[in-house]
Amino acid sequence: MPLDPAFITDWGSAGIRLATPLILATVGGVFAERSGVFNIGIEGMMLVGAFTAVATSYYLGASADPAVISLLAAIAAMLAGGGIAFIHAFLTVTRRVDQIITGAAINILALGLTNTLFRAIWGETGRERVAGFPEVRVPVLADIPVVGPILFQQSLIVFVAYFIPIIAAFVLFRTTWGLTIRAGGDFPLAVDTAGLSVTRVRYAAVLFGGAMAGLAGAALALGAVRYFTPGMTAGRGFIVLGAIVVGRWHPMIAAGACLLFGAADAFQLRAQALNLGIPYQFFIMLPYVLAVAAVAGAIGRASPPQQLGRPYRREAG
């Protein structure tokens, strides 16, 4: 039964849809970590992004074309994610506070803020469908059997996610900005002595990471369900951290890991119905187990940026 083409189309299509938020946030996370800032607050930033996107779409209501609304919602989500990321950047880069603690506090803050505002807007149980990203069907390509509908008949944001990792890899490896970011996490002193500002590089990378996490939240909320539920990110921000490790801090490989994780997630949803004998929970665990294996060095050399997690301070003496 699993080899039935209809099943594969359905599964693949869902897998890509589920992978989309992961890919967007992962690319942002790769930049932040490459610059030397660990961000376990991605979960919270995604949540804030999801909420902001839905709220924006909700308030714009029927005032404009759904495509325009979703675009504005996405921009609002990116701004919100970037705003939360600013707190992270300020505390970890300027104040040199521990990055883990800051991230953990941000997650709690995001949960508190979105829960409170959600109830304030939609009341106790209310969830209202809002305008989401429009569905796009690429002519001709979408007609290819099996693969066509999987890849080319998706929400607009999915197509964005196709290109983001490629652009990100280009920026990271083919521009001077990328060069500085990569140096910032590996050996910030070299950045400093080269006359570049470590602070500015890290702020930029963290803010970009936050904006991408916000966009990921928008993709999660407006891509399929089109409403907000409290805590709807449900640990995806942590899967992102795993994807970064498994993807060895490379946007394309990390995006590949996200696809794998999305596919596993889509499969577990279906596996419950299929009665395969393998408990579905093991598929959900996959990203996390792979991440542990990756840092433990079980799957190739995965050395993180060497100064990841450490604040930079120019030596005084």
């Binding site: 660990f38 376990i40 883990i100 640990g235 942590f238 899967i239 951290l241 795993g242 490790v245 408990p279 929970q281 093991f282 959900i284 665990m285 990203p287 996390y288 187990v289 991440a291 542990v292 840092v295 433990a296 060095g297 993180p304 997690g309």
Partner: peptide
């Protein structure tokens, strides 16, 4: 190997293990 990523990731493995 830094304990941060390993302990963090095992949280979720633990949660789903219990779910199973």
């Amino acid at each position: 190997v830094s304990e941060v990523v390993t302990t963090l990731m095992l949280n979720f493995v633990g949660i789903y293990l219990i779910s199973y």
